[in-house]
């Protein structure tokens, strides 16, 4: 192992002792509890007469005075946590003069970056698992309906996918921490990418799709569907889209297809989509999940290669 475990241990200790993470944890917990509390209050109207997947609905329903469902909240906070864990992974070691010292110890160089990544992944996992547990426990108390086995499985899958999403943001910010010498630059670059993907990707996708398939009030369903599929394809460049599509399919068994257009078509043709089993939901979003893994792997590989080839100077 040559130091890998020691590095992970030290990084974890650093994380749990630092104010940065105490603040992040508190923020995520408070926001998570708030969303679930509001969901519990609105769940009666949302669920109606249905008896299926009531527990899972806790994670989807949002309130009128707080338009925040739990997945939406996760898709905003996970990138922040991932970036906070990775943006200064390598360059802070360099600027503090620790990198040369660290690398003059008998450890393989890749264990430094692997250790940091694995430690970050552990922190993200702990954060996500704990917030889901807190939220689920609180939800159980608030509505008093226990989850069915499949709902538990779906929640578990949701946790895994969320960790994966966090891993992507962390590997991206680790990449920036290897590429940029200053921690402020790498932090800004990570946040810039996040804001771009979060705010502007939709606008750009809309512009391009609108130009290729103009949609007006007279458009046929087929035209709208064309526009919609192109819009979605472009949006899928953003890992945020991949994530939200995945968790929609995982948390909403009724959403046979994750596309609202398809829902619309379904309603027009009088075919209400039936709930899918988990395996089918997963099959639907398999490409999204693979895409997410691939993006993570690409970013991490880039950081790894750059770090391994780099010349280590103390100044």
């Amino acid at each position: 192992m040559n130091g890998l475990l020691e590095i992970i241990r030290k990084e974890l200790a650093d994380s749990f002792n630092s104010k940065r993470f105490i603040i992040l944890f508190l923020l995520v917990y408070v926001a998570g509890i708030a969303t679930i509390y509001i969901a519990a209050q609105n769940i009666r109207t949302a669920v109606g007469d249905s008896t299926r997947d009531i527990f899972l609905n806790l994670f989807i329903v949002s309130g009128s005075n707080m338009p925040f469902s739990f997945p939406l909240f996760m898709s905003i906070f996970i990138p922040i946590v991932g970036i906070a864990l990775g943006f200064d992974a390598v360059n802070s070691e360099r600027t503090s003069g620790n990198l040369s010292r660290l690398l003059s110890q008998p450890i393989y160089r890749d264990n430094v970056i692997n250790g940091k990544f694995l430690a970050g992944l552990t922190v993200i996992s702990i954060l996500i698992v704990s917030v889901v547990f807190i939220v689920a426990g609180l939800g159980l108390r608030l509505i008093g309906v226990p989850p069915e086995a499949e709902e538990v499985l779906r929640l578990f899958t949701f946790v895994i996918v969320s960790i994966l999403y966090g891993a992507f943001w962390m590997s991206l910010s680790v990449l920036f921490s290897v590429l940029f010498k200053k921690t402020s630059t790498s932090a800004l670059a990570s946040i810039a990418v996040w804001i771009f993907l979060f705010l502007f990707m939709g606008i750009i996708a809309n512009l391009i799709a609108g130009a290729v398939y103009p949609v007006s009030q007279d458009s046929t369903v087929a035209q709208v569907a064309d526009y919609d599929s192109l819009f979605r394809m472009i949006n899928r460049i953003s890992p945020g889209t991949l994530y939200s599509e995945s968790i929609q399919a995982i948390l909403l068994p009724v959403m046979g297809s994750s596309s609202p257009t398809m829902m619309m078509i379904g309603i027009y043709s009088g075919l209400m989509p039936a709930p899918l089993p988990l395996s089918q939901s997963l099959t639907l979003v398999w490409p999204q999940l693979v895409g997410l893994v691939a993006l993570t792997a690409i970013c991490f590989a880039g950081a790894y290669i750059k770090f391994m080839r780099e010349e280590i100077r103390s100044t």
Binding site: S96, N98, R101, S104, Q105, P106, I107, S314
Partner: peptide, 30 residues
């Protein structure tokens, strides 16, 4: 690196760790 010690020109330590903890970390890596 098992037998060679190196002190770089601009040496740095983990500032929020004590001297002892810093040395301990180096020791464990060895």
């Amino acid at each position: 690196k098992r037998v060679v010690g190196y002190m770089p020109e601009r040496i740095g330590f983990y500032d929020d760790m004590t001297a002892r903890e810093n040395l301990e970390y180096t020791g464990r890596l060895n």
